[in-house]
Write a protein that binds this DNA or RNA. Structure first.
Lengths: 230, 230
DNA sequence: CGCCGGGATATGCCATGGTAGTATCTCACA
DNA sequence: TGTGAGATACTACCATGGCATATCCCGGCG
């Protein structure tokens, strides 16, 4: 368990606590610091984070909306198990959203979008060759976020994020190695090239192919470690 | 303004208050009981609904996640204006989601889905000929929800709902007449037929055509009543 | 007359106390 | 030994109070 006043997870009192707690808990759930089916008590969390129960509760409500936690009224709150059916649905919905967005991005890409994506791919290649998954995952996230927001669709990224959580836990189970990160970067480059050359069909196809990577891993993982899944 | 302890909006103390307040406020915002740009005070709402500020606050947080209200820290909370760009994005995202879902529905429609949709269309035809928009809108909602949930994708309906709010306010501005409701029902019937005959392409096309109805109205409305829009 | 500053007011934000409901554990009893 | 009923210890839920901060208004100064 975490020590009281969890070291390294200091909160900035100058910013809204509730939002910070939400982000913190979400990262800890996705990063499997909190294991699936683990009980989360409002009171205990508040104690450990050094805040009151109110912002913790608000964060848990938002996490429940994303089905990252299951709230049982008057009984307790637990980290939701990784439900295979739900991960599959999340994958399906994310693909539908990102395919549509990247298609639009490829129709009329803005110069700043081209520039930002190009830079991100360079960064990813460096992080991948260095072999550091901790540095790579934020860059992967930034790539997809940039496509949404750089195409003038900020809401789409919010939606994608809200379904991505379940999938990210699965991705965390299969530690990406250097070869894997390079493969992902190549797929990003392929998507980028389709956007740059304004080829919507190619962009959509590349995105769908890219996102299907996750599906390949979950099936075998479900067989390996059944305790974590529903 | 509403009288204290708003008549007709009684809350059931036996069920979670926060969730009830959320649903109530959402309906009132979509139904334009609360006008765009209208200030919403936690304290005042709590007073009128006869509950404490805590569940009201929780409801407002969830509404803020759907961008139905804008929360300005330490300043106040207002019903979000109808931003044309946001409605367009919501339309785009909803179309992407529902097109994907209805396509899957048409691939392997379950017998119960066929039966439920068939019944809903009958009900809609009755409500439309009776000319009662209040009765029709829930049936319209149920049609789309049934497709999602009847295809084993409950999460998709949650997502669709979260973007639908902005669009529903626009729909509420243009009171649907009897002819309009009959037209919508015909489009539902077309979608249904495509599902029943397991024709994914036709189902997707029919759904996209159906959803584009909203876009036709918003442009002229934005010109008519600019005060409501952003 | 216009600009600037200080105080009063209102807001959302966080902390805390009390309550109703549920699960578990214990102990008496069959 | 198995069983059931009651006490207990948790939980999430709602209510309430205090706080920091942003805004507005109004008076004074340039």
């Amino acid at each position: 368990m975490l020590p009281t006043a969890a070291a390294g997870y200091e909160l900035d009192p100058k910013q809204p606590i509730g939002a910070q707690v939400y982000g913190l808990l979400k990262r800890m759930i996705i990063g499997l610091t909190f294991k699936p089916n683990e009980a989360l008590s409002e009171k205990e969390l508040a104690l450990r984070l050094g805040v009151s129960r109110t912002p913790v509760r608000e964060a848990l409500i938002r996490l429940a909306d994303e089905t990252l936690v299951d709230v049982f009224p008057q009984r307790g709150t637990v980290v939701s198990p990784i439900r295979v059916a739900e991960v599959m649905e999340a994958q399906f919905l994310r693909e539908a959203l990102e395919a549509a967005v990247v298609r639009r991005a490829a129709e009329q890409p803005s110069p700043t979008l081209i520039r930002d994506l190009s830079r991100l791919i360079d960064d990813q290649r460096h992080a991948a060759t260095a072999g550091s998954p901790e540095d790579y995952m934020p860059l992967d996230e930034a790539f997809h976020r940039t496509i949404s927001e750089g195409t003038g669709m900020p809401r789409s990224w919010r939606l994608i994020q809200s379904v991505k959580g379940q999938m990210d836990r699965v991705r965390f189970l299969s530690l990406p190695n250097k070869a894997h990160m390079l493969l992902l970067t190549d797929q990003h480059a392929e998507i980028f090239k389709a956007i740059e050359t304004q080829d919507p069909d190619r962009a959509e196809a590349a995105m769908r192919h890219h996102l299907k990577q996750v599906l390949k891993t979950i099936q075998e993982l479900a067989a390996e470690m059944p305790a974590i899944f529903a």
